[in-house]
Design a protein around this nucleic acid. Structure first.
Lengths: 236, 236
DNA sequence: CGCACGGATTGATGTGTATCAATGCGCGTC
DNA sequence: GACGCGCATTGATACACATCAATCCGTGCG
């Protein structure tokens, strides 16, 4: 076994076509799901709490139940790159063997289901379909990582933001949330660290988009007005 | 089954500790490896040839035998983001289900082993350890993607280049290649599209590094002089 | 109720890269 | 051997974004 994260935010053209059964655990089905759930425990985290840090031994797997968790990589100095945001149903570090390669922190109060790695491995050992389910999850995560690389390397600030926001909205829609007034629980700094920008640029670019009538900024929320922002990147 | 790529280039702090048995196929061991190899075929590609394109149905898995292959994502207009370079032993798209989410092209003449997805699935179906081997590969690929996201989002041109070059060298070393005069078979444009820069910036930055005595530029090759370039990013 | 504090916003300014444009260079072709 | 072509290099210039610096504002707290 090894590692897995599963958070998406940038454009997701092909991966994740859609998903009724929200999370991994749900897709396992009734009995398996209950049995597996029982092997783990629910842990509550307060805002800013750290679930795990990069470099630490990866002793357990996580699944967000409530709240928002961000996965990130940092360096000595301070530079931070948020690799993704995890919403309820998302699995973290299922396949990580050895050490965590990212850190995870709760953005706000969060409820997380956690299971020791050995227990999960034992559970999966006589359920072959679990492994292939994991492979599917990881494949989606890799495709998502490709999206993010494209965004980080080849998009300008404005496009990074519009794509991020529409993608974030789509994820919440998939969770059945009301996104008329899109909730944006992460800070401007989090968004900046996710998109490879600075806080100031994020603010200014959002303000510019608001002036242009693309969106409306409210405390903790953003209303997406024009559908143009979609501008879904396609294939060549 | 789903998807997998497995190419790395940026810094790789924790993932891929080391690997004697170079590739996935080799690690399978004698009999399995021979049987699996027999199920596929070897295909030769000329420079610039396309192995597959993003959006196309992913009918087969690939493993580079000789040469260099690049994986990339493009957009309507032309923007391109190279997500990775695949060297001999690297597996491409093992777990992709549905459609390819990236394209692949041979950088120079390349020899690639290819196997229809169904055949591979059948082979793996009664060899459970194959799946977990795939999970391990994918986990490494995800960790690698995180490195690349960090580089794309948080590093300046100079650091992107030095990290890329040392990382590239390390990969070749792992393959047992002589890297005294580091071969750099990919074009400046490829490097630029990988690091989120332009060709001109890559040239200029390399020239600057040469002037500073960090490296020496030769046609198709680069000699890394100062070990400082290492500057291995660590954890916080 | 006034204060302190961190996040958000806006402004002034600097700079790292992109962009536009030439030139050079290696190589295959006729 | 001259031409053509793509890649590499270098220069001049523009601009997007970072940086530095205030101010504003919502919220918790004394």
């Amino acid at each position: 076994m090894t590692k897995l994260m599963a958070a998406s935010s940038f454009a997701t053209p092909c991966a994740n076509a859609a998903a009724q059964p929200v999370g991994f655990l749900e897709r396992l089905g009734g009995t398996d799901q209950r049995q597996l759930m029982a092997l783990g425990e629910r842990v509550a985290y307060a805002a800013q709490d750290i679930l795990f840090k990069q470099g630490m031994p990866a002793g357990r797997c996580f699944s967000v139940v409530e709240g928002l968790v961000c996965l990130y990589r940092t360096e000595l100095n301070s530079r931070r790159q948020i690799t993704g945001f995890a919403l309820p149903g998302d699995i973290l570090e299922i396949a990580t063997q050895g050490h965590h390669d990212v850190s995870a922190a709760a953005i706000g109060p969060a409820l997380v289901w956690e299971i020791p790695r050995e227990k999960f491995a034992l559970f999966a050992s006589h359920r072959p379909y679990v492994l292939s389910e994991i492979v599917t999850l990881m494949a989606a995560e890799i495709a998502d990582a490709h999206d993010k690389m494209f965004s980080l390397g080849r998009r300008a600030a404005e496009e990074k933001l519009t794509v991020f926001l529409t993608s974030w909205r789509d994820r919440l829609v998939r969770l059945g949330r009301d996104v008329d007034l899109l909730p944006v629980p992460m800070s401007r700094r989090d968004i900046a660290d996710h998109l490879g920008l600075t806080v100031e640029t994020v603010c200014r670019t959002l303000a510019k988009l608001e002036r242009r009538g693309v969106l409306e900024i409210l405390p903790g929320r953003i209303r997406l007005l024009d559908s143009e922002a979609a501008a879904a990147p396609a294939f060549a």
